[in-house]
Design a protein around this nucleic acid. Sequence first.
DNA 1: CATAGGCATTCCAGTCACTGGAAGCTCAAC
DNA 2: GTTGAGCTTCCAGTGACTGGAATGCCTATG
Lengths: 131, 131
Amino acid sequence: MNIGEVATKSGLPAKTIRYYEDIGLIRPDRHDNGYRLFRQPHLHKLMFVARARSLGFSIDDCRVLLALYDDDSRASAQVKALAQDHLAQIDAKIAGLRAMRDTLADLVDACHGDSRPDCPILKDLAAKHHG
Amino acid sequence: MNIGEVATKSGLPAKTIRYYEDIGLIRPDRHDNGYRLFRQPHLHKLMFVARARSLGFSIDDCRVLLALYDDDSRASAQVKALAQDHLAQIDAKIAGLRAMRDTLADLVDACHGDSRPDCPILKDLAAKHHG
DNA sequence: CATAGGCATTCCAGTCACTGGAAGCTCAAC
DNA sequence: GTTGAGCTTCCAGTGACTGGAATGCCTATG
């Protein structure tokens, strides 16, 4: 398969796939003409990575996950630990965003949003926030 | 005030404040020796930006917000529109993260996490995901 | 055989908002 | 005068791509 075909099949842009090769995440073969030659296992890896990325795993996490996947003697505990760690990070990010969201929503609610210049949102931004 | 003092007072690293000058967000004066000279309004602006950033506004948003803050004839509707837009983006991001989180949490739950290699997390990553 | 197009290649630069580090200058204290 | 903290500039790196330019390859048609 050429890069266009794996791009379609994996849902990843060709640019991204080339980038993944650059950083050593996949190592496709080459045709005589220099074109990348992807075989079934390459496509499989790319789909694996695409899925992991869609779950928010970093590229480095993906490297580890791929290695674990390739390692028949892995302990599932290793995978679970990695996933739990990542889950905790997502939870933290959600919590941070929710705090943001709530504050911002209060401000938006408080702002009448008409043609007058008086604005609680700007007032809040301009107020001193300790801590 | 020197940069160290405004850094302490605003809670922003000195590096960040220099960066904000680089990109034209603030324009402190200068001492004869080349040191930046911050006055009260500069500090005020920095605190304004710090608060806006903590609410997730982009630097470009901050530029607009500062301009609106400086403009006595602004309509609060403009500020509200910007904030609502940003709120919608935060909501979208939270929704995305929650979907991620739920999927991942299911996988973590399904994984026994012991010394055996069998792992539902890796199985999911390796499975074909359409759509 | 020339050419047009669509695909592929490489390489460089830009994104966003910083952050780290090196090399050197200034200032206050001892 | 020497130390050390604080300031300066400039360059490079982060993460994970993304855009674009310049060029090469392949296929199909006139």
